[in-house]
Nucleic acid binder design. Structure first.
Lengths: 181, 181
DNA sequence: GGATACATGTAAGATGTTACATGATTGT
DNA sequence: ACAATCATGTAACATCTTACATGTATCC
């Protein structure tokens, strides 16, 4: 079995906050800015099935009138989730999966000590610094920067995006340390 | 047949610049900041096959020693490509496919008149403005902003990202108009 | 009584990832 | 000769999208 998808971990994160049904989880994705994930039944229900197969969540019937299935996280599920939250930020994350970096950070608050989040921010910052440096170097070598085609502008937007995230890591670190007091 | 993927259009964009082999295209994805796309043979070669099925590209053997297949864009391919470049930016693009917005913009330079790109930027800006407004409203209503958990910080990073892109659209418009002279 | 929201699923299809597989050419 | 790079592919697998399908409870 492969590594679970970010959707599956996000579902665990939500279920850890509160035991919920598949329908509830779908609504969480439609009504909050976690829109990032699709709310289609064709993605949620199979993902819940997979989590059951892994024994990371368990089912129980809802007491209330409606015929709902309530899912809750098992201990094994929690272990896997905590590990996922804390996996180091890699160069590959920055290039291909930057959104999951933020999702992991978002779920850290309720689940790991603050100093883990601070270390996580350090790693993220380091990767951002090294990758933007790489991009700038590429631009210089290829002479991209001086031309003003839409291609160069799009490239600039990429760099600026990373820059803005870099600024965010610093701000976030400050806010997180303030909140400790 | 469904809508072609952004990978397929990106391949066309590269082939429009220069007739190339599958291997060349793979290298373009590994050695330039178009890293966004995977350079695995398992994605490129099947995509080229699909484009051939659509009759959007044609093959010819390379004259040089090696046994390479050179692909070039057909007229039908060019038509489809130009249409893709100009499709209006939607709210859904901003939420789920923002990277393809930039890819389309990047390819516009060599392929559509500047005023089309300017209109494209207008649409993009409009969508960014309306979506950030939405996000801010959500934050206010849910009382997210005042809490300082990692969740709220991650949310803030999303908003700041859109903000930075908004600033970029304005800068890009200015640069594009300067370049007209 | 009818509309809307609740609630759970399946089926077909496309795309993409990883890993495997093969062979030719070039440089040293 | 040998390694590296050129060059093209296939197979298995997982995931996700779209669309279809079904039935219940609640509100007006």
């Amino acid at each position: 079995m492969t590594q679970a998808s970010s959707l599956e971990f996000a579902l665990i994160g939500l279920l850890k906050q509160k035991a919920q049904s598949g329908y509830d989880l779908r609504k969480a994705f439609t009504t909050t800015p976690m829109r990032h994930f699709s709310d289609s039944p064709g993605s949620i229900y199979p993902a819940l099935r997979r989590l059951q197969t892994r024994k990371w969540i368990s089912v129980s019937k809802d007491a209330s009138g409606r015929k709902r299935q309530l899912f809750r996280v098992t201990q094994a599920g929690e272990r896997a989730f905590l590990e996922w939250l804390q996996t180091p930020v890699t160069r590959e994350d920055v290039i291909w999966r930057i959104d999951t970096v933020f999702i992991r950070f978002a779920f850290q608050g309720d689940n790991v000590p603050r100093n883990v989040s601070l270390r996580f921010l350090d790693q993220f910052e380091e990767q951002l610094v090294s990758y933007t440096r790489e991009l700038r170097q590429y631009a210089e070598e290829s002479g991209l920067a001086c031309s003003s085609t839409t291609g160069a502008l799009a490239f600039a937007s990429g760099v600026e995006g990373y820059q803005s995230q870099l600024a965010w890591t610093r701000q976030a670190r400050k806010k997180l340390m303030e909140a400790s007091s």
